[in-house]
Computed example of a mutant assay.
Amino acid sequence: MSVSLPYWRLSGFYFFYFALLGATAPFFGLYFAHLGFSAERIGELVAIPMLMRCLAPNLWGWLGDATGQRLAIVRIGALCTLLSFGLIFFDKSYAWLVLVMALHAFFWHAVLPQFEVITLAHLREEAAHYSQIRLWGSIGFIVTVVGLGALFERVSLDVYPVAIMMVMAGIVLSSIWVPNAQPEQRPETAGQGGFLRQLCRPGVLAFYVCVGLMQVSHGPYYTFFSIHLEALGYERGIIGLLWALGVVAEVLLFLVMAALLKRFSLRLVLVTSFLLAALRWILLGTLADHLLVLLLAQLMHAATFGSFHAAAVHFVQRSFGHRQQGQGQALYATLAGIGGALGALYSGYGWTSLGPTWVFAIASLAALAAAAIMVIPLHKRRT
């Protein structure tokens, strides 16, 4: 990679940003259960930040493309995330937590799509090396999930909001350290048109539908995986390590992702990710009480998140002109948010009535549907 690339500054931001995901995805459900909420209310609270991804990324993405002030949006979003989450110390009622979850997520989801554009602008023609920077986000996730898992075996979950605030402060500080960069002013392809015209190409629309389905399939995992394992008798420290194992597999995948993308098409990587996701959810829903099966399922996180996300970011970059990059990445985040929210909601309402096996089976069907949709354009291109 280029010696002028601010590798550690970019990597540091990803470290703290995804450390926050490591502090929230595995533990929000446990924390809300600790506060005494039912599975339905837990599903609703976890869905709120995902629903904010339906609004926030597009608004901030449009603003970033219109003004070019993407780094300012990242810094303001990081600071407002910290300040708005601090409201949790005033009350723990359901209505107040709805406000806290919605407000902090509105600003949090402003951050990553704009930062992805900045990172790719720094990389320019070396975009295949994106994964080598993004892997530090996975490392941040691992450090946080293992550390908090061990912490909550020793102390009460009452300290959880303090831990969250410390990670958010890290995001704010790291955003100040990052230098700015603008996407390369590439000549527009003849007939390329504006954002909507580029979006309406069949292959691009199919991709975004698959993004939503993939995140629907992740709903039970991000909402109830920790609760599921605790009900099966696993200790919180072990649960943290299992979350970390999945992200370790993701890190190892990121290390070789540049080589994989040179050898295989983006579409093939995406289809493979969807199929492995379908298998993973079946294993978690039926055989999670067997540790070896659980370990195998967690290793599949390399595909269900790692290869999927890396290929998706590249797909968006290749599908839109430089004036639409922010909106393209924002729409990716939005569809992921819609899918994630639907996944959290259906799993919340079905967790008690249907049980984990059927909830994860529905997740598997969503991933299979994404694979089928993506295979259709692949078949047409071969004929």
Rank of each mutant, 00 (worst) to 15 (best):
S4F: 12
R9P: 08
L10Y: 05
S11N: 07
F13R: 04
L20V: 14
L21E: 12
L21G: 13
T24M: 15
A33I: 08
H34G: 03
C54W: 13
P57Q: 07
L59S: 10
W60L: 15
W60I: 12
L63R: 14
D65G: 07
A66F: 09
G68Q: 02
Q69T: 08
R70F: 09
A72S: 15
V74L: 11
R75N: 07
L79W: 13
L82A: 10
S84F: 15
A95F: 11
A102T: 02
A105H: 03
H109K: 06
V111L: 13
A121P: 04
H122D: 07
R124C: 01
Q132V: 08
W136K: 01
G140R: 02
G140H: 03
L148Y: 09
F152M: 05
V155W: 11
D158K: 12
I164E: 01
M166D: 01
G170V: 06
G170P: 06
I171V: 13
V172A: 04
I176T: 13
A181D: 07
E184N: 09
E184Y: 08
E184I: 13
A190T: 10
A190I: 11
G191E: 03
G193N: 00
G194E: 12
R197C: 08
R201F: 05
L205P: 00
Y208D: 00
V209S: 13
V216W: 11
S217N: 09
Y221R: 07
H228Y: 06
A231W: 00
Y234W: 12
Y234V: 04
R236I: 15
I239D: 03
G240T: 10
L242F: 07
G246N: 05
L255I: 14
L255V: 14
V256P: 06
A259W: 14
A259V: 13
L261F: 11
A277W: 12
A278N: 00
L279T: 10
G285E: 09
H290E: 08
L294I: 03
L296E: 01
M300R: 01
F305A: 06
S307D: 06
V313C: 04
H314N: 13
V316H: 06
G321F: 01
H322G: 02
Q329L: 04
Y332H: 12
G340I: 05
A341P: 03
L345G: 02
S347E: 02
G348R: 00
W351T: 00
A361F: 14
A363K: 02
L365P: 06
A366Q: 00
A367C: 02
A370Y: 05
A372W: 09
V375G: 00
I376S: 12
P377K: 04
T383R: 14
T383A: 14
